[in-house]
C-alpha cells in the first residue's frame, strides 16, 4: 500500500466505525439536550436493542441481506416503546425527587441491566450467521466494509431526519422550547412531560436501531454496550453536549482519530488518543468543538 492508500483506507475505516459511534451518540445527546439527563444506561439499551434484533433475526427469514436487516425497523419501534415505558414508569417518577435520583436510576439500570441480561439470555456471545459479516466493496485498493458502511449511511440519514424533526415539526419546536426553559414552555401550554416521553422514546428507539445495524458484524453479549457507549459519551462531550448534529460529527471525528492513530502512531494508542483529545477539549473549549456555548439541539 502506498502512502495515499494508507491514508485513504485509514480515513474510510475511521468514518465507517465513526458512523456507528454517531448513531449511538445521537440518542444520548438528544436526551441530554431536551431533558438535561445523562443516561448512563444508554449502553444497556443498545445491548437490549441488539438482543431484540438477534431474536427477531432468528425468527423466520434465512441468512440473507434482507434476513438480517429487516429487523432494524421493528427493533427500533420495540425499543421506542421500551423508551416510552422507561420514561413513564421510572424517569418521570424519579423526576419528582430532582435530577440526582434520575441519574442514579440510570446508573443502577446500567449495572442491573447487564446482570439481568446475563440471567435472562446467558453470557454466551451471539452472532447470527449472515452474508454481511466480512463483505466489502472494493474501490481500487480501498475497501469499504458493508456492515459499517450501512451504519454510516443510516447515521447520516438519521441526522438529517432528526434535524428536520427538531426544526420543522410541532414536536421539534416544543422540544426546543422545553430545552430552553421548561417553565416558560409550560406557561405557553406545552406539555413538557409529553415532550420528555417522546424524546426518550426517540432516543431509545434510535439506539435500538443502532443495535440492529451492529448485529451483522458484532457479537451480542451482556456487556457489549460499554464497548460503544464510552466512545459515544466522549463524542458528545467533545462535540458539545445537547447538539444532535454535533453528536454525529463527534462520533465521526473520534472514529477517524482512532483509525489515524492506529495507522501512523500505534494501534495500542488508538483509545488513549481520543482521551487526550477529550482532555484537550475540556481544557481549551469546554463547551465542545461544535457548540456555540449554548444549547443548540
Amino acid at each position: 500500500m502506498n502512502a495515499i492508500n494508507v491514508l485513504a483506507q485509514a480515513v474510510v475505516n475511521g468514518l465507517l466505525i465513526g458512523g456507528v459511534y454517531a448513531l449511538v451518540a445521537v440518542g444520548l445527546n438528544l436526551m441530554f439536550g431536551v431533558m438535561k439527563l445523562v443516561n448512563f444506561a444508554h449502553g444497556e439499551f443498545l445491548m437490549m436493542g441488539m438482543y431484540v434484533a438477534v431474536a427477531l433475526a432468528g425468527l423466520a427469514l434465512p441468512a440473507s441481506f434482507i434476513g438480517i436487516y429487516w429487523v432494524a425497523v421493528p427493533a427500533m419501534l420495540i425499543m421506542a416503546v421500551v423508551g416510552a415505558c422507561f420514561y413513564l414508569l421510572l424517569l418521570d417518577r424519579a423526576a419528582k425527587f430532582g435530577e440526582s435520583p434520575q441519574i442514579l436510576l440510570t446508573i443502577g439500570l446500567s449495572i442491573g441491566g447487564q446482570g439481568l441480561a446475563q440471567v435472562l439470555r446467558g453470557s454466551d456471545f451471539k452472532l447470527v450467521p449472515n452474508p454481511i459479516n466480512g463483505a466489502a466493496l472494493h474501490l481500487g485498493s480501498i475497501y469499504f466494509q458493508v456492515g459499517p458502511a450501512i451504519s454510516f449511511i443510516v447515521a447520516i440519514a438519521v441526522t438529517i431526519v432528526m434535524a428536520w424533526i427538531l426544526r420543522s415539526t410541532r414536536f421539534g419546536k416544543s422540544a426546543r422550547a422545553v430545552a430552553e426553559s421548561v417553565e416558560t414552555a409550560e406557561m405557553l401550554g406545552i406539555d413538557a412531560r409529553r415532550v420528555y416521553m417522546i424524546t426518550t422514546a426517540i432516543a431509545i428507539g434510535l439506539v435500538g436501531l443502532a443495535g440492529a445495524l451492529v448485529i451483522p458484524y458484532h457479537f451480542t453479549f451482556p456487556n457489549v454496550g460499554q464497548n460503544f457507549v464510552v466512545v459515544a459519551f466522549l463524542a458528545i462531550v467533545i462535540a458539545g453536549l445537547g447538539s444532535v448534529i454535533g453528536a454525529v460529527f463527534g462520533g465521526l471525528l473520534l472514529g477517524v482519530m482512532q483509525s489515524l492513530t492506529a495507522a501512523y502512531l500505534d494501534i495500542d494508542l488508538s483509545t488513549a488518543a481520543i482521551y487526550v483529545l477529550f482532555l484537550a477539549v475540556l481544557l481549551l473549549r469546554p463547551q465542545g468543538l461544535f457548540s456555540r456555548g449554548q444549547r443548540t439541539l
Binding site: 459499517p148 483509525s259 494501534i267
Partner: peptide, 17 residues
C-alpha cells in the same frame, strides 16, 4: 509486533497494519 486495546469495536486498522 503490536498490542491493541481490549475493547476495540473495529479491527480494520489492525488489518491495515
Amino acid at each position: 509486533d503490536s498490542a491493541y486495546p481490549g475493547d476495540i469495536t473495529d479491527a480494520s486498522p489492525l488489518v491495515s497494519k
